[in-house]
């Protein structure tokens, strides 16, 4: 039955309904569980911090009954940060899911193809050469990331063997840009270099409603076309020919989806600095949870949100000192990638 889903485009409505129902129950259950987990984590992350607050404080603050310091800490410091973690996690998970289903490769994620190194370069150039502020840096990161991603795609070419070439070209480009980045950091004076290094680690420290509002607006704006293209994307997973046969304009759709995937990743990078490996891990974890090779886009987005909220909580509280969340995700995500590679080798 499962094999059928992958090979045959679903023209017969009955067969389709029967199969998709079976998947839908499990997907639904997983999504509900993830949403519940997300709520619990969100609530816990509102209670935790250096300033002691209990459950009742959080309830009071959320229902508008708390006053003074408690209200400020929970509503103005912790709440926007937690919401940003959710939003950016979802954006990364969604972007990763788009890439992975387009390249039909679990490793075709923006982390691997040089996006992170490119946005780092863009931000460094703005920070160190033009001493730009928060928004200028965000734009630099956006530009750098998008230009690098485009360059990697062009260099990798579009004919066959996409996975291999894309990955190797991405690694080469990243290596070159990283060398350049190290040089920029070495040339700058210490204070600015430190600031740039903090940005490069990817952190939600000090972000508030001011950053949350434009990020939310942009995320919602990007979600509309993604939702519209979700169906063609599913059909393209069956192969370009099958998609063509069912009336999808493959080239244009692929180009559009890639642009959206890059934009979603860039949104997160521009807001908080490069937060690696959520885009790679979230769709993989979602796939394992749902137990199907095609998981759609909603579950990975939800998984991404859970992962980033969890990672940010760990980065804030687990080591006694506040660490940038990007360091958390790159270390744990890298280990996960290693585990994937070792497991794949055993098979």
């Amino acid at each position: 039955m499962k094999a059928l889903i992958h090979r045959v485009p679903r023209h017969g409505r009955d067969a389709g309904r029967q199969v998709s129902f079976r998947i839908r129950t499990r997907t639904l259950a997983v999504c509900l569980a993830l949403a519940a987990l997300l709520l619990v984590l969100a609530f816990l992350s509102l209670t935790a911090g250096r300033f002691d607050t209990g459950m009742t404080d959080v309830f009071n603050a959320l229902s508008g009954q708390a006053t003074g310091k408690t209200r400020m800490i929970i509503l103005e410091w912790r709440l926007p940060r937690m919401l940003l973690a959710m939003l950016l996690g979802a954006a990364l998970g969604l972007g990763g899911a788009i890439f992975q289903s387009l390249t039909r490769n679990p490793l075709g994620s923006p982390d691997i193809i040089g996006f992170a190194a490119g946005s780092h370069t863009g931000a460094l150039v703005v920070l160190l050469l033009f001493s730009g502020g928060y928004y200028a840096t965000a734009f630099g990161a956006l530009g750098g990331g998008i230009v690098t991603a485009l360059l990697v795609y062009l260099l990798a070419g579009t004919t066959g063997q996409q996975g291999f070439r894309l990955i190797v070209v991405g690694i080469g480009t990243s290596a070159m840009l990283s060398a350049f980045n190290a040089w920029l950091i070495q040339k700058a004076d210490l204070e600015m270099a430190m600031g740039a290094a903090f940005w490069a680690a990817g952190s939600l420290n000090g972000l508030g409603f001011e950053q949350l509002r434009p990020a939310t607006a942009l995320f919602c704006l990007l979600c509309l076309p993604v939702a519209a293209l979700a169906r063609p994307l599913r059909q393209m997973e069956l192969g370009d020919d099958a998609a063509l046969a069912s009336g999808v304009t493959v080239r244009r759709t692929r180009g559009l989806l890639m642009l959206l995937g890059v934009a979603l990743t860039a949104l997160a990078t521009a807001t908080a600095g490069p937060i690696s490996f959520i885009a790679l891990c979230a769709p993989q974890i979602a796939r394992r949870l749902v137990g199907a090779s095609s998981v759609g886009l909603f579950t990975p987005a939800l998984t991404g949100a859970v992962l980033l909220v969890l990672a940010d909580a760990a980065a804030q509280h687990a080591f006694g000192r506040q660490l940038p969340v990007g360091i958390m995700t790159i270390s744990v995500g890298g280990l996960y990638l290693l585990w994937l590679l070792i497991r794949e080798g055993r098979r």
Binding site: F277, I330, S331, G334
Partner: peptide
Amino acid sequence: VRLLLSGVAISAVLGGIGSS
């Protein structure tokens, strides 16, 4: 590719801890 990717993963983990 798998070897290269494992190199990427190793560098990422070590680089992350190193920069912290």
